[in-house]
Design a protein around this nucleic acid. Structure first.
Lengths: 230, 230
DNA sequence: ATCGTTGTTTGATCCAGCGCAAAGAAACCG
DNA sequence: CGGTTTCTTTGCGCTGGATCAAACAACGAT
């Protein structure tokens, strides 16, 4: 089974084609905290994650950091500014030890004109990403922090939840600070919220480690089933 | 000069090609307040604006509205869920009397495989849109209301500013409510902010009408040149 | 073990901006 | 023109969360 099987960007290609595609790629491995690309770099390459977790973060001139998304195996990242012909406005940083393949813009052009399905896939992936961020934009604009944190956690469970006894564990390190940067709040507020959930038995969290004990209760906070406040 | 000349999606096609492209399209005209498509509709068509302004809005289950973007002549809209194969998560509503061409998903597929440059353009446009909304996401997460309103206004000036004596006029109706829905705040707060700017001689606004008298002062609020507060 | 570093918790204070309310002001309509 | 509707303005009180501050806990390195 070829390493590119199961990647979103190359879905629809057969094995010989995947081999040709992979031949053009460069393989990169990064340890936690290291960068695949940095904010401000001229965008030259597009990445597809093979292993591990990568977070895409943006830093404001004032130094605030925002986590845009987490990328897992099979997903594409670093692509946006490449297509738009710009510099990276965000950085791609390994969260766990991670591995990815990367292609240059020119290589992607060749591949896409040879197999148009790749272009089709790219359009679809970007569209999905747009839908996702619009939803989060709307949440940020209209919902309070607790709900946003609940939503963010639910999303993490979906993307990276591993069932263990006692609940579902987010299977890579996530700090309070990270959750704050995902939801647009401070680590302090996140900490308070998690503490209150801990007391209610909904989660059980430690140092950069979050275990969700009652996923459906989390969802009911995220979606506000029955009641309004508290 | 063909009507499709100058549209972003079909850049790079020559006149005979544009004629063929247009032959597949349906022409639609809408009066202010009318919808090109509604939230929840199955996404069937992609639009390219020819005339007027269209706003793309999203409504939350709780009834909050968010303005995602304004679309002007030559720009594509309604495309995202089409590519992602979903229903519209936002609505496209005419702000002024507006005109657009639209294509079905099947037609776009045909056109794209015949002239791959269209797919290429689509990728680029979606990428641009992603960069834009990420920037705004970051602003919403980290900046206060006055700055966000200043940014939003600056953007409107860039997209739809018309020079008149005494300043630059946003050349379509924008209410306080609209500005609130763009920046994620309430019409009250927007009104207060505009009043204070009015006193400082920066803008001069009326009923759904905004004239920017000192664009560079607006920008200095948006970008926070020299000082921090007020 | 011990120290230094990095992440977490919790308290106390403060304020930007929301929600509510009510009164103008401009446009629209018959 | 008078009545209605749609926008805008402004005041007031309240509060969600930011900010500031300090102690605490877990981990890594030596």
């Amino acid at each position: 089974m070829h390493i590119l099987v199961g990647t979103q960007l190359f879905r629809g290609l057969d094995s010989p084609q995947l081999i040709e595609v992979a031949a053009e790629a460069k393989r990169v491995t990064k340890e936690p905290e290291q960068y695949f690309f940095r904010q401000g770099d001229q965008a030259r390459r597009l990445f597809v994650a093979l292993k591990g977790r990568v977070k895409v973060v943006q830093i404001t001139p004032q130094g605030h950091q925002i986590v845009m998304r987490y990328v897992g195996a099979g997903e594409m990242f670093g692509s946006v500014p490449l297509y738009a012909g710009r510099e990276y406005l965000s950085a791609g940083q390994a969260v766990t030890s991670a591995e990815a393949l990367s292609w240059s813009g020119a290589a992607m052009d060749r591949l896409m004109s040879r197999w148009p399905v790749i272009a089709r896939n790219a359009v679809e992936l970007l569209a999905e990403e747009l839908l996702d961020i619009r939803t989060r934009y709307q949440e940020l604009a209209t919902e309070r922090v607790e709900r946003r944190v609940a939503r963010a956690l639910s999303r993490l469970v979906r993307q990276a939840g591993r069932k263990v006894e006692g609940g579902v564990l987010i299977d890579f390190p996530v700090s309070r600070q990270d959750l704050g940067e995902i939801t647009g709040t401070t680590l302090h507020t996140v900490s308070r919220i998690l503490s209150s959930w801990e007391q209610r038995g909904i989660v059980s969290s430690g140092r950069r480690r979050i275990l969700i004990r009652r996923p459906h209760e989390l969802i009911s906070i995220a979606e506000d089933l029955y009641h309004k406040g508290s």
